Amino acid sequence: MAKLCTKTAIPAGEMINRCVPENATFDGQATFAGDKLVYLWAFPLQTATLNGMYTSSVTADDCIPVTSFFYGNQIQGSTKTDIVESSGYYNFKGLDDVSKYFVLPSYCQHQNLSVTKTTDNVKTLLEKRSVLPW
Rank of each mutant, 00 (worst) to 15 (best):
Phe26Thr: 04
Pro65Asn: 06
Thr47Lys: 11
Ser130Leu: 13
Leu40Phe: 00
Ala42Trp: 00
Lys93Cys: 05
Val98Asp: 06
Ile10Glu: 09
Ala2Gly: 05
Gln46Ala: 14
Cys108Met: 04
Phe43Val: 09
Lys117His: 09
Thr47Met: 01
Ile10Asp: 09
Val20Ser: 06
Thr67Arg: 09
Gly94Val: 01
Thr116Pro: 02
Val103Gln: 15
Thr118Lys: 06
Ser68Ala: 10
Leu4Ile: 12
Asn51Arg: 13
Leu132Cys: 00
Thr118Arg: 02
Asp62Tyr: 05
Leu45Lys: 07
Leu113Asp: 04
Asp120Tyr: 12
Cys5Phe: 08
Gln29Thr: 12
Ser130Asp: 15
Leu132Asp: 07
Met1Leu: 11
Glu85His: 12
Asn73Pro: 09
Asp27Leu: 15
Tyr39Trp: 05
Pro65Thr: 10
Thr124Ser: 09
His110Lys: 14
Ser87Asp: 10
Leu40Gly: 01
Thr124Cys: 01
Asp35Asn: 15
Tyr39Arg: 12
Thr67Val: 07
Val131Arg: 13
Glu127Val: 04
Asn91Arg: 13
Ser99Met: 02
Val115Ala: 09
Ala24Glu: 07
Val38Pro: 05
Leu4Ser: 12
Thr119Cys: 05
Thr81Asp: 08
Thr124Asn: 09
Phe69Trp: 03
Tyr90Glu: 14
Ile75Asp: 03
Phe26Arg: 14
Ser114Thr: 15
Leu50Asp: 09
Glu127Lys: 14
Arg18His: 04
Thr116Phe: 02
Lys7Ser: 11
Lys128Asp: 10
Trp41His: 05
Ala48Val: 12
Phe32Trp: 15
Ala33Cys: 03
Asn51Tyr: 00
Leu113His: 01
Val115Leu: 03
Val98Leu: 08
Pro21Arg: 08
Val84Pro: 02
Leu45Arg: 08
Gly72Tyr: 00
Leu4Thr: 14
Phe69Ser: 15
Asp120Leu: 13
Pro44Phe: 00
Pro105Arg: 02
Gln109His: 07
Lys128Asn: 14
Ala24Cys: 11
Thr124Gln: 07
Ala30Thr: 05
Thr116Trp: 01
Asp82Met: 01
Val122Ala: 07
Val58Gly: 00
Lys36Val: 13
Asp97Gln: 12
Gly34Tyr: 11
Lys93Gly: 05
Asp82Glu: 03
Ser57Gly: 01
Gln111Lys: 13
Val84Gly: 03
Asn121Ile: 04
Pro105Trp: 08
Asn73Leu: 08
Ser87His: 06
